[in-house]
Design a protein around this nucleic acid. Structure first.
Lengths: 151, 151
DNA sequence: ATCAAATCGTGCGTATACACACGTTCTGCG
DNA sequence: CGCAGAACGTGTGTATACGCACGATTTGAT
């Protein structure tokens, strides 16, 4: 018998545990878990606008802005005005940012390893699929959950 | 092929989606998603100390304190000095708190329903198990992941 | 071409998450 | 009994999450 609030609570539980552990791991490097997420997102698509960056993280635009201000102070990212849209600003990692990201990736390797050791390889794929299904379901306000496929 | 950072990102993704949706749902009631978690925890074990409450949420003791101050202002919870330990304070829901919690539970029913419609019943159990395994793995600092069983 | 509507970034306010330091009280060992 | 160390709550500081409102710019429809 499955208590109806167990699943939401379990989701909250893993996320917080993961976040805490990652923050602790990165403390020596002067960055946070969420800043790592931002850098990782940048590393997969350069010259994003702040809006697009926020959409991909996913995070709120005003949150992303605050993070960018801090990361800019550390010299890890740069912002420039968009070439064709003077409202927008494009964001890119600096050389220092790329270097830092590599360090963080290596430092967090143990966490990912630990996670994948806790579950079977097959299960990891199932888990990933279920999490994405839940996310799509929660994000889609419409009552037609049909076309959410390749997100 | 599974990108190594996909699983952590997916966990982050569901949690944030769930949190946003819950916050939006509760906005009319003047409470937050996390305050609901606190009330739900209280409803399953009365007269907890702040520390024990924080341990069960799970959250940081100083975070819980801040939340309690706000909930106390709203008259949803009460704090009293512990009968045998004058350092500690016990927390309990007021009548208004219990009533509010029932309202919140009903209001959030649609979210839980939506989640369980997004996955198969069997899968829900698998998902829950995997999430707990991951949580245990992330919380255990020791290198012996043996005795984490019935958490 | 013009003007309303949408979009972008910014700034502000509130709530959460956590680390850390502090004073108080309790516990347990000698 | 007395005292060191642990445990509890408090307070502070920083980072994140998000809603909302604002000015500036771009877009789209006429």
């Amino acid at each position: 018998m499955l208590e109806k609030s167990e699943l939401p609570m379990a989701i909250r539980g893993v996320y917080l545990a993961l976040h805490r552990k990652t923050d602790a791991k990165f403390a020596d490097y002067g960055v946070t878990a969420d800043q790592f997420v931002l850098l990782a997102t940048l590393s997969r698509g350069h010259a994003l606008t702040q809006r697009e960056l926020a959409r991909r993280m996913p995070s709120d635009p005003s949150t992303v802005r605050a993070m960018l201000v801090l990361l800019e102070k550390q010299g890890l990212v740069e912002r420039e005005v968009h070439p064709s849209d003077s409202r927008a600003r494009t964001v890119a990692m600096t050389a220092a940012g790329k270097k830092k990201f590599k360090q963080l990736w290596r430092a967090s390797e143990t966490i990912r390893t630990q996670m994948f050791q806790a579950i079977e390889p097959d299960e990891a794929n199932v888990l990933l699929r279920l999490l994405k299904q839940l996310t799509d379901s929660l994000n889609n306000d419409t009552r037609t959950p049909s076309m959410a496929r390749n997100a």
